[in-house]
Amino acid sequence: PKSKVIDNAYQVGDTPVSPQRPKIYLAFLMVGLLLPFSIIYANQLLDNKIHNKVSLEKLINEVPILAELPKMGRNEDMLIRSDDRSVLSESLRILRTNLDYLIKSKNDKKNNIIFVTSSVPGEGKTFISSNLSMIFANTNKKVLLIGGDVRNPKLYTYFAQKDVDKIGSRSRGNVDIGLSEYLHDPKIQSKDIINSMLVHSTTFDVIYSGKIPPNPAELLMGNRMGSLLDEMSEKYDYVIVDTAPIMVVTDTMLITDLADHIVYVTRAGVTESKVLEHPVNLWNQGKLKGLTFVVNDVKESNLGYGGKYGYGYGKSVKKWWKF
């Protein structure tokens, strides 16, 4: 051969000089540890939403929180049944108990007019007002649910769909007129707009919002709204009004002085922390008397102690070996 080894290479050790694998592994390990922690920290730093009762308590100081409600499953009914033992139904019963305590704490009057509102649409105020009416009615009390959001009526989606007959029967006589017609026409009496409902064997009455009027604020500012609530307060044990969001329109603020209690609905992962400064400031100014909060749509992992460990409490579970 024409080539030959003149001098052998100088060997430093048994390992190659490059690539230095231990250093590369260490660098990737550090990056692998720092990257997820950095993402988590940045996410928490930029997160401006509430997620459960604990995060809400840090923002509202002395305003009471009545309950936190879990996220609904896909197959769950929008309206709970009297024999329902799910965590959602138990959370609603906690809401009922806490609210009923506040109602009975004042003995000078009936103290039974409850407004349910929120900051913006989509936070669950109609869902809570409907189920709150159901769960109060389950105690054999006379309950009236009023659709006070005359600009964006939603009660029809719960009680007036065609498939509502599958869960009960109801009176269909007065669905064409509602609150807006009553406020506009002095000839219409309260009995003309009340619909008796039977849903899941639970009986209560509903006043729908009626047709969307061109002047909702002016209608609500009239004397008939106050007269209606005074009359219904004497006839019913609980009067629950599903009102408009206060950050969107002025309608609810025009009639807050008619309410004994205002249940303010927030939604986990949706309601921004800064938005809650508005109702708290109004409460401090005396414009939202009887203000309380509810956290809706909370993930199971974010629920408090009772929510995490109370699933199916007292419910008999069928063993897998028994048929």
Rank of each mutant, 00 (worst) to 15 (best):
T250A: 15
N223V: 06
L179Q: 11
K235M: 11
T271C: 05
M225I: 14
A244S: 11
V239D: 00
S233L: 02
I262A: 05
D192Q: 08
M221Q: 13
G310P: 02
I193V: 13
D205R: 03
P214K: 05
V249T: 11
E234Y: 14
D242E: 01
H278C: 01
Y305F: 14
Y305I: 13
A244Y: 02
Y208P: 02
E277H: 13
P279Y: 00
N223S: 13
L220K: 03
V241L: 04
L288V: 04
V295Q: 07
K274L: 09
M197T: 05
A217D: 11
K211W: 04
A217R: 02
E277R: 12
A259G: 00
L179D: 08
N195D: 13
H200I: 09
D242R: 07
N281Q: 04
S196R: 15
M221E: 04
L183R: 00
T202I: 07
K287I: 03
V248N: 14
P279I: 00
I194A: 09
L258C: 04
E272R: 14
K299H: 13
Q189K: 15
T252A: 01
I188G: 08
M247Q: 14
G286N: 03
V294H: 12
D230T: 10
E234F: 08
V248H: 08
P216S: 09
P213E: 09
M232A: 15
Y309H: 11
N281V: 03
K274T: 11
G312P: 03
D176M: 10
D205W: 02
H184W: 03
Y305W: 15
L229N: 00
M247N: 12
H278K: 07
E300Y: 14
D185S: 08
S190H: 10
T202A: 02
S190Y: 06
P213M: 05
N215F: 06
S201L: 06
L229E: 00
M221W: 03
V241A: 01
S233V: 01
I207A: 06
M225K: 08
N195G: 02
L282F: 08
K289L: 02
E234S: 15
I188F: 06
T256M: 01
F204C: 08
V248W: 07
K308Y: 03
W283H: 14
L303S: 05
D297H: 12
K191Q: 03
T202S: 01
G286F: 00
G306C: 10
A259S: 00
V280T: 09
I188L: 11
D185N: 15
A217M: 03
K211V: 06
E272A: 11
N195C: 07
Y305P: 04
S301R: 14
E300P: 01
T203V: 12
W283K: 12
V265W: 12
D237I: 12
I255L: 06
N215I: 07
G210A: 03
G286P: 08
I212F: 14
V241F: 04
A244P: 07
L291E: 05
N296R: 11
N223Y: 12
D176A: 07
D230C: 05
